[in-house]
Design a protein around this nucleic acid. Structure first.
Lengths: 188, 188
DNA sequence: TTTGGCATTTGACTTAAATCAAATAATTAG
DNA sequence: CTAATTATTTGATTTAAGTCAAATGCCAAA
């Protein structure tokens, strides 16, 4: 998996100065306070958010309950994927759960850049592949692991981050109730 | 979602004759008997399989049990994605569950073609996006629906196909036991 | 047409996790 | 510093789904 990140970095390292400055030109730094929204449900996702500092989450409402789909940290890319790709209103919110700094890249501008910079299509593909492999892994976890196993795995893979996130979000990310998560934690 | 298939078709329709014949040249038709394997676990997935006739499934073993990750029908693309993308041994098997005819495209040849045909990178991206949106939808279903709801949804979305597939595969695709599936079925 | 092997259903019981309710603990605002 | 929120834990109970076991149904090959 990490191999793939290397590929992405290698590609970016190979970009010429003109491509880099073009990318710079369509990106801008934004700051959000804890609790603020980078994207609301119902909005079409027209930007991607590269997290430079802080933590965000993606979630949607299901029968009055929040379902957290993704927790995003420094150097992650926050996008409501289906909305971004198909220009449909997003089912998901993207929310800052700490104060956050992001580099926000406009989708339309990026699409235009791709026309004259085929390397950027390649970049888009590699990033999408990365997210896709992450989704496959997550689906595998839902398909085969119990609540406790999923929590243990998360703890193993993201030990330091987890400390900064309220258990409600973690529980909903794992697809279990807050109480079950609390009980699981005592048994470890 | 279907909009996205239209995009893919529009892109392909716009290919020039040379691109098309190049694609033809790196594809070959293969036939598999019911039960045979298009890909074994442990093999690196070096082809993609466009289903022209019949049904296949992707699955892996977990604690001696089969976990079906995907059921693929006519006009679907069967690939062990993570293996294909990262050249790692596949965790998944791809198996014909009826007699099957596929158009098998060599990955390396396709990668080479992409160098001189940037349109093909675009195709690759669109196909990957399509799969990614499907994964997001499937994850949503695991995250929020009960066994019965998942079955009902499958029944609604794939009514005719389901008839041709043993319940064991459907149960494992839905992430529930065979017995639970059987009971769910009587209550509909 | 019978038989042996799958596929599916049904029954009894167990278990993981949800729900509802309340008690602590920890933060944050005034 | 204390009150007021918010976060987390603990307890009692229910429920969805799993497991184990057996019965029945359904073909397909001899």
């Amino acid at each position: 998996m990490n191999e793939h990140l290397k590929k992405i970095n290698a590609l970016i390292d190979g970009f010429d100065a003109e491509t880099n400055s073009a990318l710079q030109a369509i990106s801008k730094t934004k700051k959000y306070k804890k609790g603020e929204f980078l994207l609301y449900q119902g909005e079409v996702c027209k930007s991607s958010f590269w997290i430079e500092e802080g933590i965000t989450r993606k979630y949607y409402m299901n029968e009055k309950k929040e379902v957290t789909t993704e927790l995003l940290f420094k150097h992650d890319l926050a996008v409501a994927f289906s909305s971004y790709v198909s220009n449909q209103p997003s089912r998901e919110f993207i929310q800052a759960i700490t104060d956050v700094t992001v580099s926000c890249m406009d989708k339309n501008a990026f699409q235009h850049l791709k026309i004259n910079h085929p390397q950027l299509i390649q970049l888009d593909l590699l990033m999408t592949e990365y997210y896709t492999m992450w989704l496959e892994k997550r689906l595998f976890e839902f398909h085969t692991l119990s609540a406790m196993e999923r929590y243990k795995l998360l703890l193993k893979e993201q030990p330091d981050f987890i400390r900064h996130i309220p258990l409600t979000y973690i529980a909903s990310y794992l697809g279990i109730s807050l109480e079950t998560l609390s009980r699981v934690r005592t048994k470890i």
